[in-house]
Amino acid sequence: MHVATFRQQLAKEPAIAAEGSGVQKTALAVKLQAENLNFYYGKFQALHGISLSIVTYKITAFIGPSGCGKSTFLRTMNRMNETVRNTRVEGKLLLDGQDLREMDVTFVRRRVGMVFQKSNPFPKTIFDNVAYGLRVNGVRSRPVIEAAVERSLRRAALWDEVKDKLRKPASALSGGQQQRLCIARALAVEPEVLLLDEPCSALDPIATLKIEELLFQIKDITTIVIVTHNMQQAARLADYTGFFLMGKLIEFDDTRKIFQNPSKKETEDYVTGRFG
């Protein structure tokens, strides 16, 4: 698929976009919901009263200058923030209406997958990388694992490139391939939500394009939330976009509204490049 195709698709987006009425008013299924979420690193408050809803099978993007809290917010959605010492969350985070923080943490992370800024393949073979999540979650059957690995690699548009070298170490792949491998690894456990933290920031434009294409391919099986510092990327990919500034969610709306007709002055300054 090509960028132009993305644009066409954006153009024939469903009714909500045309109405321009924002997320909250639609009747779409809400997958993840934050209510008045505060986040602290020690005494420093990194997030201030974030409230928003992530819609099922849509791509949601978060933009904003670095240090604005977009990644922090992303990491609270699968409780990865808990791996950092001395952090604290206040408020509610609901996954399918259930509070995330009352669930078992490994269970949350299996349901809400994550892809990181820097690709982080394990020092194992390509196959074992993709199979890791399944094994961790108790899948033992060899045929099931093999099928899942192939399916995930196909979804991540990597199968054709690696099908002959599944037993090779993952470190032999190129940067873009490694990142797609990490996406395949995350997809293998069939997450309901896939969080991506600036997945393309270390990649060249061609590799970036491949990742964007594959995200488009998988949005009908999983809900995608992506943090990016690249506004064009958000505009190309996302159905909804949120703009963060200084730990606050300034505006959250339909992507086209954010980029063409934002309701807040700060958003306009940022998307038109007038901001720092």
């Binding site: 698929m1 399916r151 456990v189 069939e190």
Partner: peptide, 26 residues
């Protein structure tokens, strides 16, 4: 929409909650 893959049933959707199970998690 690009629907090249069917939506497949999710494999394991069960929260390991009991004490014993968490112990087995290690």
């Amino acid at each position: 929409m690009a629907t090249s893959f069917p939506v497949e049933p999710r494999v394991i959707v069960r929260s390991p909650r009991t004490f014993i199970e968490r112990l087995r998690g290690g």
